[in-house]
Design a protein around this nucleic acid. Structure first.
Lengths: 229, 229, 229, 229
DNA sequence: GATGAATGAGGATTCATTCAT
DNA sequence: CATGAATGAATCCTCATTCAT
């Protein structure tokens, strides 16, 4: 269009800024979209913003994703990497105590997922899930179910090896999950913590694990009834 | 005026037009709006829907709230009536063990707040907070701060009376809060639990409290280091 | 309505503020409406404002005027007092020179009409006339036509008595009218004068009359052709 | 694109959809908007009408002007292109008598501005100015002030060259302006003239100038007092 | 493929008008 | 008569989506 661009060899790539690899486009759009969806929510994110952040024009987004809704779904799908098998293998090989294992598990999760943008997906599912029931179901199958199973395995291992008391595992799993969700929401939402407070995730995990393992009480409980219910 | 309505329940009114109920309107609108905002989010809630659910016409909503945003803020404010003083007094008078007190606290919270629509506010703050920084600050001051303080008092009481070990109270508070947030999100969002599972809140609370008090481990920890850090 | 007003004798008129004579209502509404229409235009004037300025409630306006448009028309009609007969008589009796008479005429007009709220009607007709063709026609009949006729009489008298040259009277009338309209618009609109300038109407009239009578030129014109065309 | 349009005048286009004319759009919109604002006023002009008259859809207007108010302001600005420098130069070079110059000035103004749509701006400023104080200030700076200055120069020239008597120039300027405003309002508003009358602008100007220059009176005034006050 | 001008359905908001009290 | 709560048609404006270039 511009009269002054005739003999520029596009492969010369002197300035790779504006030289985006075509194959990379969808990925860059997904990254931009994840950021914006997490930060502002589905409705408040404009397609043009996504395009701008990815360095392309509005129309280009629709070249790769047929609609805003499909973009959202793609963002969720893309960021749910079924790494659970890998993790399963990794944890099956764990040789330390189950107490250490639980701590290790949560810390690993935090550094590989919770602290990354990937955790924004959970925030999105919580915030926007009601508009996307099919995507929530997908998320439940791909994340919630395997995640809970993995945690349950760790707790089961502790019980089986005589390290943990015999407790209702469902609730125990939810206890671990609640801690993880608290971390995620602390990261992505201002509504969990007081305004001026910031949370040290590793210390929080260490403490939660310690409390969960050893309890707050000095004396042991008289009965086990509640825990094993 | 209508002579043919003798035994009709006035709350079941078949939409008698132009009913004048200035006193009741704002409350009815706030209830309708809370429901819709929690269910669908801020952007996806149409003012006309709010009006319809409250049984009035579009224009009437604007008679009481100058804009959608102000309606949202009013919804938040309305449902944050500083009940903390009352609770403070109530809990100050508590005479049982601190372990029982913690359990009582959480159960009371659940039945008075968590299980009611008011807990939708927390869901809203998490989901939509980023558009309303001033309202989040208000929520932090009116809910987060006093709530955390109340929990901390209970834990402090246990420590002071020699019932609980001396642990980092900030983290311990967050542990309790995490459990409460998990309950709220289980109620308001499908993204926490697996699709076919439902959670018994009282049992969950009982278990969380038991684990938090007595721990999962059979053996006591060798050192106290992590907990008191 | 208020429980504390039972035995007040309305005729006691201790506080005539809130005690509006019923017969006066329409008049007060017309005054309020004239002010607002002139100041803000027809569309930007809200019925509630008119009501508020007249010290009544919104509904009351509709008790006296069936619609906003009818209120406007009533405002115009009310403020077009056909005082032209009276003035005609007054001016027929004038005994001075026609030059003085012209000056007297314009000054009288300014003090009786131009400087009062009544002149807002002309501003309204100019600004809003296009929406109210029937009212414009009425205004033309009741104001423009008799006004122009009156001015023409003065000029005709001057010509007949040999005081004025024989010129095209239509144009001469428009010259006088233009000066009057300039005064009106200076009063009701900021768009005629520079921001910091204010106009002394009497001096302006004196000058306009003087120029109109004696001209700017020192030498008399060579030909009369243009003037008498 | 459309093969069946060989001899069709392209300006008569049968609304070919999605025509891309970014360069031309703003101008077309401003023309349409000027017409409508002058004709119906600010409030009564609907954005969709402006769009329709410019041959585009509703949304397109907002592509170029962020709001109705900004469109209005753009209309005013667009039609106030500081032509005064050009005119200043032109008039400085004028070599005839100052009497002729004044006539030439007004006639030129009428044919270049007064008789064109641009004069609608003055009508707009008078009618709607009160809603747009900043635009009125702009108009005063860009139109009223330079216009008055230009007229004053002409009159000053006549005085300096001994052609005109020494009169109060402010009032003399207002006399000229009043005539111009009368012409504008005759064109844009039915409220100045009687219904069945139409005005020949060139003849009106010629007459006004003649009266202004030579006066109506046959005898010269005894004193100069009023004029030079 | 990319672009960004153009579209138009959708939703917030205003305010003249109605009417039960 | 007077009130002011309630109504809903009318209009501004946004933004996902389309499509000519």
């Amino acid at each position: 269009m511009q009269l002054s661009k005739p003999f520029v060899d596009p492969t010369a790539s002197l300035a790779p800024k504006r030289e985006r690899r075509k194959e990379a486009r969808p990925g860059e759009l997904l990254v931009a979209a994840l950021d914006l969806f997490v930060e502002k929510g589905f409705a408040a994110t404009r397609m043009e913003e996504v395009a701008a952040r990815a360095g392309v024009s509005k129309g280009t987004v629709f070249l790769y994703f047929p609609s805003k809704e499909e973009l959202f779904k793609a963002v969720v799908r893309e960021n749910i990497s079924g790494r659970f098998e890998e993790w399963n293998a990794e944890f099956l090989a764990y040789e330390g105590s189950s107490a250490d294992m639980l701590h290790h598990c949560m810390t690993t999760w935090w550094h590989r997922i919770g602290s990354t943008k990937a955790s924004g997906i959970s925030k999105l599912m919580i915030s926007e899930g009601s508009h996307f029931p099919d995507i929530v179901a997908f998320y439940q199958n791909e994340v919630v179910q395997p995640g809970h199973a993995l945690i349950r395995q760790v707790l089961q291992r502790g019980t089986d090896r005589g390290e943990f008391r015999r407790v209702n595992l469902d609730f125990a799993v939810y206890g671990v999950v609640a801690a993880m969700m608290f971390l995620i929401l602390s990261k992505h939402s201002a509504a969990c913590l007081q305004g001026n407070v910031s949370l040290d995730p590793d210390a929080y995990i260490a403490n939660q694990v310690a409390v969960m393992l050893h309890g707050l009480c000095i004396s042991k409980p008289m009965t086990n009834s509640v825990l094993s219910r």
